[in-house]
Amino acid sequence: MPWSRSWFPRCAPRRRADSVQSVACRPAGGALESAVSDDRVEAHRDQLEAYEALCRELGAKPAAVALAWLLRNPVVSSTIVGAMTIEELRADLGALSVDLDDAVMRRLDQIWPGPGEAPQAHAW
């Protein structure tokens, strides 16, 4: 989720106000996911462990929870997942059965708070 959370706070409030939708995708079919350095993983170790624990509580894979979060976000009109195999497609479709109620969404916001809403969080 850190990859998806970084741009939402900057543009989501304006997009909601203007009823502008976004499309989220997984660039390069997820090939860039393997490029995450060990330093970045270690820097976010506590968040990753909390996120994985939440996913276990939900009985869902982390990728399915991330996709479910995107699908529940009001400024996202669709997601492009880039599944390259039937197994990846089935895993991505698992997001449709993940129930993210308001309490779970608040927990996700606590785990991945982001920098804050724009423009306040990005003011000079």
Rank of each mutant, 00 (worst) to 15 (best):
Q21F: 09
Q21M: 14
V23R: 01
V23W: 00
V23S: 01
A24R: 00
A24H: 01
C25A: 09
C25M: 09
C25H: 09
R26P: 02
G30R: 05
G30T: 08
A31G: 13
E33N: 14
E33M: 15
S34W: 13
S34K: 15
S34Q: 13
A35K: 14
A35W: 12
V36H: 08
V36A: 11
V36S: 10
S37I: 07
D38Y: 07
D39P: 14
D39Y: 08
D39N: 12
V41R: 02
V41N: 00
A43Y: 09
A43H: 07
A43F: 09
A43W: 11
R45I: 12
R45N: 10
R45K: 15
D46N: 13
L48F: 14
Y51R: 02
E52P: 05
A53P: 11
L54Y: 10
L54C: 08
R56G: 09
R56C: 09
E57N: 13
L58K: 06
L58V: 10
A60L: 04
A60G: 04
A60Q: 03
K61N: 05
P62T: 02
P62F: 03
A63E: 06
A63D: 06
A64L: 10
V65S: 03
V65I: 12
L67R: 08
A68H: 06
A68D: 05
A68F: 13
W69F: 07
W69P: 00
L70P: 00
L70T: 02
L70M: 13
L71D: 03
L71I: 13
R72L: 02
R72D: 07
N73K: 03
V75R: 02
S77H: 10
S77Y: 08
S78H: 10
T79D: 03
T79C: 10
I80M: 08
V81H: 02
A83W: 11
A83D: 04
A83G: 08
M84N: 06
M84S: 11
M84P: 04
T85R: 02
I86C: 10
I86Y: 11
E87K: 12
E88C: 03
R90A: 07
A91C: 04
D92P: 01
L93Q: 09
G94A: 09
L96K: 13
L96N: 14
S97P: 01
S97N: 13
V98T: 06
V98W: 06
V98E: 02
D99M: 03
L100V: 08
L100Q: 00
D101V: 07
D101S: 04
D102K: 02
R107H: 06
D109L: 00
Q110S: 08
W112L: 04
W112H: 10
G114A: 04
G114D: 01
P115Q: 11
G116N: 03
E117W: 14
